[in-house]
């Protein structure tokens, strides 16, 4: 995935079954963000792989004051990249079993 300066990782082990999963997001390189970032640490949240949209979570982070509106796309993309990777891994496991 592209280095967006925003790191998103699994906050729990992926059992490959449940749709809602805990993720942890933090800013690794604030120079890649357009707005001034208030260093508040790592943000942990749950994300539903089947029903949720990464950009919506990014917008909620903006509304909660973690990021500025100008960076909502980069945050959304960072989450989307990680979510895609999780889904891709799950697909591989499923097709490996079949």
């Amino acid at each position: 995935a592209e280095d967006t300066g925003v790191r998103v990782e699994l906050a729990e082990e992926d059992d490959g079954k449940k749709s809602s999963i805990a993720l942890r997001l933090w800013v690794e390189d604030q120079k890649k963000l357009k707005g001034k970032y208030k260093d508040s640490g790592a943000i942990e949240f749950t994300f539903d792989l089947e029903t949720e949209v990464p950009e919506t979570v990014a917008q909620e982070m903006v509304e909660s004051g973690f990021f500025l509106e100008i960076d909502v796309k980069i945050v959304g993309k960072s989450i989307r990249d990680r979510v895609s990777l999780i889904k891709w891994r799950r697909q591989r496991i499923v097709s490996g079993h079949n």
Binding site: R7, W26, E28, D29, K31, S40, G41, A42, I43, E44, F45, T46, V57, E60, M61, E63, S64, F66
Partner: peptide
């Protein structure tokens, strides 16, 4: 303080905790 902070937004819960220094880049 290293205690986690909880922020609610539109029904979602964000838990904020310090990032381990080993995970930070360029700092």
């Amino acid at each position: 303080s290293s205690a986690a902070q909880v922020v609610h937004s539109a029904g979602r819960r964000f838990i904020v905790s310090p990032v381990p220094e080993s995970r930070l880049k360029d700092q």
